[in-house]
Design a protein around this nucleic acid. Structure first.
Lengths: 216, 216
DNA sequence: CAGGCTGGCATGTGATCACAAAGACTGTAT
DNA sequence: ATACAGTCTTTGTGATCACATGCCAGCCTG
């Protein structure tokens, strides 16, 4: 490692840059479900050839963030209700465990940061900004789970978020809510009180509730 | 190479063929932890160019089945004890849920098949064949979980198996056990009795026990 | 006007190449 | 004998190209 000539963009490898950008877009709901992408289009957009575009796309597809038709056409996935329920259950399982592991290490500074992030969530809800809402909501969860010191579990949770990204966008886009996130307050309260069963319940409910209203 | 000379192999796409073969090798412990691979070597072995080899490798790396150094060198991962503990916890979480969901649909035919597979497990243990042991052991679990009708969860479980593959190989390779798998019998018994809490406990124990003896 | 067919365009796949960087190896000096 | 330096080989990366395939529009026919 001589010296990276680029202070921004930690990894300067083309395929990684493309991967990260696309991943963000998908996870935070910039792309609607069913939207299709082309390798040449991605390449042109990022100023690279098809090769790194293909690697990024295949990686995303492997993580379930994109689906590939038999002919190799890629598009953002349109999830069935069963799939959504399953992914919600997975979120509940993993994230409850992460929260539980994070709790003993959650100091006041962390809780304050969660509070701050949660204000951003409320603001996004008030402005009906779906992308900001998803982004700050996930940041709230990630900030808490980071304290669990369980990178493999966190990676799994993020993979699930990734798969739900376009769907969440579609969901919150047609949502008329303006009330701030109630269950986040419960999470913070349980954290403050050191109430582990309460924390588990609050996380499970928060994670499950949003997806429940998908049942058509 | 205009026409693939191979009528078998359901998917005739080069990168997919390479991916599947490598994945099997890793998951079933054909490769020791820390073993390094080269793209040109893989390409030569499968008779393809570097391009599909790279895609297969990157996909495996994305799934945690291979690690890539900063310079892009790939090798099978040597897991830390914390990582192993974490992955074991993940297995417990997900597989207990899968077993629980599979139980209501577990008919006699399924239990018989589990019994048969378990005999293969016993035989592999008796012959001290680590690869056969891992393969039939995972087949036992997969057969049960398939009944849960939860493809996303099963995929996650398999990803964890994949990450643990080389480590399990190293573990069972230096194991001197010859007794047949006790906890599998408990699982089958709980299934027969319709004892859901017992099933959860049996699965959790079976999944956890093997990795416990890793704590150096 | 409807339905099927054909031709052309768009798109993914895999091979090959040039290049850069990382590692290994060898020879030398201390 | 060991440490260092220079080179030579190995290896990953990304661009480009040829090719096969799938999709779609427009046309023709009934």
């Amino acid at each position: 490692m001589t010296q990276t000539p680029r202070p921004l963009d930690t990894h300067l490898l083309a395929h990684d840059r493309v991967y990260r950008h696309l991943r963000s877009r998908i996870m935070y709901g910039d792309l609607a479900p069913g939207q299709s992408l082309t390798l040449r289009g991605i390449g042109k957009e990022f100023g690279v050839s098809m090769t790194p575009a293909r690697e990024a796309v295949r990686r995303l597809a492997a993580e379930g963030a994109l689906t590939m038709s038999a002919s190799g056409r890629v598009s953002t996935p349109a999830l069935s209700n069963e799939r959504i329920e399953e992914l919600a259950a997975l979120r509940a399982l993993i994230e409850v465990e992460l929260a539980s592991r994070a709790m003993p290490r959650a100091h006041y500074a962390l809780i304050d940061r969660l509070q701050t992030i949660n204000n951003a969530v409320s603001e996004a809800v008030a402005h009906r900004d779906a992308v900001s809402y998803i982004r700050s909501n996930l940041e709230f969860h990630r900030t808490l789970y980071l304290r669990a010191q369980a990178p493999a579990m966190l990676a799994m949770a993020e993979t699930v978020w990734l798969q739900l990204g376009p769907t969440m966008r579609a969901l919150y886009g047609r949502l008329r809510r303006t009330e701030p996130p109630h269950f986040h307050k419960l999470i913070i309260a349980a954290l403050r009180a050191g109430d582990e069963p309460g924390l588990r319940l609050a996380v499970r409910t928060d994670v499950t509730q949003g997806l429940r209203m998908l049942a058509t």
